[in-house]
Amino acid sequence: MKRKGDRLALVFFLSPALFLYGLFVLYPSIQALWMSMYQWRGLGEKTWIGFGNYERMMSDAIFINAMKITGKYILFQVPLVLIISIGLALTIANLLKSRWLNTYRATVFFPYILPGVAIAMLWATIFNPVSGMLNGLLNAIGLEQYTTEWLGRTETAFGSVVFVNVWSMVGFYTVLILAAILNIPEELTEAAEIDGAGKWQKSFYIILPLLKDVLQVVIVFTLINTLKIFEMPQLLTSGGPNRSTEPISLYIYEQAFQNFNFGYASALGVIFLILIFIASMLTLRLTRGEKV
């Protein structure tokens, strides 16, 4: 009797989560596979075209471009976020036991809680070539030659979007790493100080190796969050100029909700899902491998 009650309880505890998760997360993801075999504009006839959408993808220069751009985001954003958040966390940790630690931590974390849409709009106004703060400041300090259309030119647009992404993300990871540093038993670091290790030596040889676990989490998180970026390029540049800032997320949205190619959009999603799995597995392998 007890066993039966236990089983009932299990069903009670797990079924709401499994039901919602299965219906709204797993089912559409699997459904994408099936839909990717059709040509369908949402209205009218569905036409079975087999792997037609996948064939189209191989010769779709815009898709290939979007994949490259996504790769470029990862290439720049993940290391930048990693380096900056480690640097900031170590710097803040230096101020241990001073009342400043909390102030800085709170300030650095602040952008993370702001709505992404508002952050994009905030920086769009700052990058504005005519009325924006950035060009205004450059003019004020005599660097007129560096003023430009930050979001309107291919040379600067990508960097600007990456900057805003990093600006909005880095606080979270800094706090994450900082928490791990503060968890390190003081005896370990004190011992190093007695041995005469300098501040930076201490950071490098004592603290960093102890952070391996949290850094692995940070890398996986930044990777996934970089793959997810959407509102920054959408609102800052609409993916432009000439799609130079358009990640795959924006292209899927464009195909699904602007061109209404639902079948093709699903196929893009499927391919991207496979790539995400490969990337996540590789990252886990690599970071785990180091530890062993």
Binding site: P129, V130, S131, N135, T148, E149, W150, L151, G152
Partner: peptide, 14 residues
């Protein structure tokens, strides 16, 4: 100058 980074209401304002 700068016009290639403007929205159209901004360009028109200028």
């Amino acid at each position: 100058e700068g016009t290639f980074g403007l929205s159209h209401t901004e360009a028109q304002t200028l």
